[in-house]
């Protein structure tokens, strides 16, 4: 927390200092990474989702990217509205960000319910049949060729064909279609509420007539967040392989893991509800 605050503090200084320096972007990147490390950015949720949905490296990148894009857009829209459209006369920032947390909670809740339904239904049959043919003729190869992250993913695709019938033809292409929206939704929920430090940088930049520089700093801040979330996603994807190896030799772990995906999905749903409830309670105290 402290080092993140320190970077944020220095970041505020560079927006007011004349000139554009590489140090400013380094600070913005570190401040973003430091911000993402602090609790409450859905890192564990995203990791749970990646693990539960058999995520790959590319999915982790999608997650990080969606957080960065959403966060930058959120800061930009709110910063411009606050500076030029007297947003603070309409709604207080405290209230606005709490409402955004409600929105983020709704997204998490909806994503959790959606994953839960996927598990309970055994995968979306409509999609499976729709994409089944095109996949079996080409996609396995293109995926294997496109990725450089080793045999693990290739094996995963290969095994899907053999053993996943009860889960509804879990081909690689279909997995992307099922997984990406959920990842994007979690990314959007993670980036929906603007970081106070990034918001202040943009507002200060807009006040000083340095909007372009400030926006670039906010973008770099988002990249810092994205890299941390990408790293968490990588750990989740890589760590799952290790656990799988353990599960093969420990029957207790095997038993526990049988129901775990459904529990994780239910957990994400419950956590979404908790976020909404917490934000709603906060709204009653600040308004």
């Amino acid at each position: 927390m402290t080092f993140a605050a320190s970077f944020s503090d220095r970041l505020q200084d560079v927006i007011q200092s004349p000139g554009v320096t590489p140090l400013a972007f380094l600070l913005a990147f570190l401040a973003g990474a430091g911000h993402a490390v602090t609790p409450g950015h859905g890192k564990s949720l995203a990791a749970a989702y990646l693990v539960g949905s058999r995520g790959r490296v590319r999915d982790a990148a999608w997650l990080g990217g969606s957080v960065a894009v959403m966060h930058t857009l959120s800061v930009l829209v709110i910063g411009v509205a606050w500076t030029f459209l007297s947003l603070s006369d309409v709604i207080r920032m405290e209230t606005l960000t709490t409402w955004l947390q409600v929105g983020a909670g709704v997204i998490v809740l909806a994503t959790g319910i959606w994953i839960l339904r996927q598990h309970l239904r055994g995968g979306g049959h409509g999609h499976d049949h729709h994409h089944g043919h095109s996949h079996s003729h080409g996609h396995t190869h293109s995926h294997a060729a496109a990725h450089t992250h080793g045999p693990t993913d290739d094996h995963a695709v290969a095994h899907d064909h053999g053993g996943s019938q009860e889960h509804g033809h879990s081909h690689g292409h279909e997995r992307d279609q099922v997984k990406r929206p959920g990842l994007l939704l979690l990314g959007i929920s993670g980036g929906l509420t603007p970081s106070p430090a990034a918001f202040l940088v943009l507002a200060t930049g807009l006040f000083l007539g340095r909007a372009g520089f400030a926006l670039l700093l906010v973008l770099t801040f988002g990249l810092g967040m994205a890299v941390v979330l990408f790293g968490v996603g990588l750990l989740a994807v890589a760590g799952s392989t290790i656990v799988v190896r353990g599960a093969r030799s420990h029957s207790l772990l095997q038993l526990a893991t049988r129901v775990a995906p459904v529990l994780a999905a239910a957990g994400i749903t419950v956590f979404g509800a908790v976020i909404i409830a917490t934000a709603a309670f906060h709204l009653t105290t600040v308004t």
């Binding site: 693990v51 539960g52 058999r54 599960a247 772990l253 526990a256 893991t257 775990a260 995906p261 994780a264």
Partner: peptide, 11 residues
């Protein structure tokens, strides 16, 4: 096995 293992990590 892979799926269960990932599920455990998810949990």
């Amino acid at each position: 096995g892979r799926r269960r293992g990932r599920g455990a990590l998810a949990l």
